[in-house]
């Protein structure tokens, strides 16, 4: 697995250096910046800084701008990581390299991890850029539970990686990237508490937030980076995120394997 990981990491790095996907990079930053600026303008000029009392009870904070900017930052990060990993195999298929890859006895998990870790470099730059913009529009960062930041980030990345495997399986099943990924992203942004708490949504939609790693990731990141939250809540969310990640991971690996086979039968057979 290690060899496939390092080989794919290196290959992706060379490809990125040679043909940097500027459109995706700028697009993801603009998405985050748009959420930030939209929230800033509407909060100050439309709502005159007035917040619904329910917002404070649902979120435990009255700092709406930090809430939304964190939502924008991590939504952009999640979209970026999901896209990088999920599109790997369908891109190989479109570029005519899938057969050559599947001919090798390499580990598929190592391959995806290599792509994910390399992709994190790009997503990380986008993440930092949006945070920097956010600081000018009211993002207040506090170090509430700083020791938990790294473990939370690792679990969040793992859960998003696992979710990307499932998304990639659907892409192979539908032979499509655009509609498949954007359907997920629209639902994910709506129910994960990016710009408002999911409790404002009708009950039947709220349930969807429970299967979104981004929802737990945002709850955790807001707790440790913007406002303090009880440790019990943090542990509960961290456990939920880990469980969800493991579930997605198991389903994703099986689904991806099945779809690989199906693609070979239908596309190349």
């Amino acid at each position: 697995m290690w060899i496939a990981f390092s080989a794919t990491f290196k290959r992706q790095l060379i490809t990125m250096r040679r043909a940097y996907p500027w459109s995706f990079f700028i697009g993801h930053i603009l998405d985050g910046v748009y959420i930030t600026i939209f929230a800033y303008l509407s909060y100050h000029f439309i709502f005159q800084g007035q917040l619904n009392t329910q917002f404070v009870s649902y979120t435990g904070t009255s700092d709406y701008l930090s809430y939304v900017i964190m939502g924008g930052v991590f939504n952009s990060f999640a979209v970026s990581l999901l896209m990088i990993v999920s599109r790997m195999l369908i891109n190989e298929m479109r570029e005519g390299t899938l057969e050559a890859l599947l001919l090798t006895p390499s580990s598929r998990l190592g391959y995806f991890l290599g792509a994910a870790i390399q992709g994190l470099m790009r997503s990380g730059i986008e993440w930092l850029a949006i945070i920097c913009v956010g600081l000018f529009f009211g993002l207040n960062l506090v170090a509430a539970h700083l020791a938990l930041l790294l473990p939370i980030m690792i679990v969040l990345c793992f859960a998003l990686f696992a979710q990307a495997l499932v998304l990639g399986g659907f892409m192979l099943a539908f032979r499509d990237t655009y509609i498949t990924q954007n359907t997920l992203f629209v639902i994910m942004t709506l129910v994960s508490g990016v710009s408002f708490p999911p409790q404002f949504l009708p009950d039947w939609i709220q349930g969807l937030s429970l299967i979104m790693p981004l929802y737990y990731g945002l709850e955790l990141m807001r707790s440790v980076m913007t406002h303090a939250a009880p440790s019990s809540d943090i542990l509960y969310h961290l456990l939920s995120l880990s469980t969800l990640g493991i579930l997605y991971f198991a389903i994703g690996l099986l689904f991806m394997k099945r779809m690989e086979k199906s693609v070979l039968e239908k596309h190349f057979g």
Binding site: I14, T15, R18, G96, T97, E99, A100
Partner: peptide, 15 residues
């Protein structure tokens, strides 16, 4: 084993 197919597939063009 290995396989070689005709045409311009099975290679990474950016590498």
């Amino acid at each position: 084993v290995n396989m070689i197919a005709g045409g311009e597939r099975m290679l990474y063009w950016r590498l």
